[in-house]
Amino acid sequence: MKYPRILLFIAVLTTEIAFLSSYAMAETTVYSTWKNGKLANTTYVNTVPTYEADKDLKGKSFQDLMVEGFEAYENNAHKHAWRLFSYASKQRPGNVESNVWHAKSEYQHLLHRDGESRAKKEALITVNNYLRDKPKNYVLESLKRRIERGLNPDSFSMEAMQFVLDARKAYGKKDYKTSSALYAKSVEIDPHNAVAWDSYAAAFYRSLTGSKEERRRATLPILEKGYSFNPDHDKLKRNIDRTKTRLSTK
């Protein structure tokens, strides 16, 4: 009788070691999220679990819903992420971050299932519904513009948007140097935010000393780089042409 027990013990021990080894080898991801305007990193183990469509979400805290949503999104389980972020948004209707991720995950799910046209249409409906409760919200308006331009909102970064919001505040206080630096960080993370590039150029221009010609010449590369990422943005093109015209008349 002892022999089978020893075999059973060895089998259980081997299984536990294998489980712990696989867990230790799993990729650990630090996901950036924002709380009250401050960066808060959330760490989770990046696995590929089987997500159940009818999984009961009741009883989950807002934080749990968001973290599980991030994990599902990173593992391309967009349908499950969509449900999680939707449920999180219902828990906290005023939380813009959950609203953004709801629209992003919805777009990805429908993109793979039904194509770009349907994904764009439904994601815009979702964003507009949130804008109805939060009219003129800068982040949601920016996401809406991104989708309307035909760009995949996967590129839309909440981290970059926080830099934009801080840059706007600094600009309003006429702290153009700080504003310029914050816009620079934003477009480095998310170069497809055409408005941020335009605002970056304006803040950078005002942060400089010297003649108008010198400042325009220094600012032009920012506009041109922004336009290289956003060739569909008319305002950037107009500002480039206007700047070049003014420089050529000197």
Rank of each mutant, 00 (worst) to 15 (best):
E141G: 01
E148T: 11
A160K: 07
K136D: 15
N137D: 15
S155T: 15
I125R: 06
R132W: 01
V164D: 08
R118P: 01
S157Y: 09
N137L: 05
I147K: 03
Y130M: 06
S157C: 13
Y130H: 12
G150R: 14
V127K: 08
A167P: 07
L131K: 00
S142M: 06
T126L: 12
K144C: 07
R132P: 00
A123R: 08
I125W: 00
L124S: 00
R145V: 07
A160F: 07
D133N: 06
K120C: 08
R149Y: 13
P153G: 04
A119S: 08
D154R: 04
Y138I: 14
E141T: 13
T126Y: 04
S155V: 12
V164C: 10
S117F: 08
R132S: 10
E148V: 13
N137H: 10
K121P: 00
Y138C: 00
V164F: 13
E122A: 13
Y138L: 08
K120V: 10
M158S: 06
R146C: 14
G150H: 10
R118V: 15
L140R: 06
E141S: 14
G150Y: 03
V139R: 08
K120T: 15
S142N: 12
L131T: 00
S157A: 11
K121G: 01
F156Q: 05
P135A: 06
E116P: 04
N128M: 05
R145Q: 11
R149G: 10
G150M: 08
Q162G: 06
D114G: 03
G150P: 09
E141W: 09
I147L: 05
A160R: 04
K134H: 06
Q162Y: 10
E148P: 06
E116L: 11
Q162N: 11
A123M: 11
Y138M: 08
N129D: 15
G115R: 06
A160D: 05
K121V: 09
G150F: 10
L140F: 06
K120S: 15
E148Y: 06
Q162P: 01
G150L: 02
L140A: 08
D133V: 12
I147W: 01
E122Q: 14
P135R: 03
E148I: 13
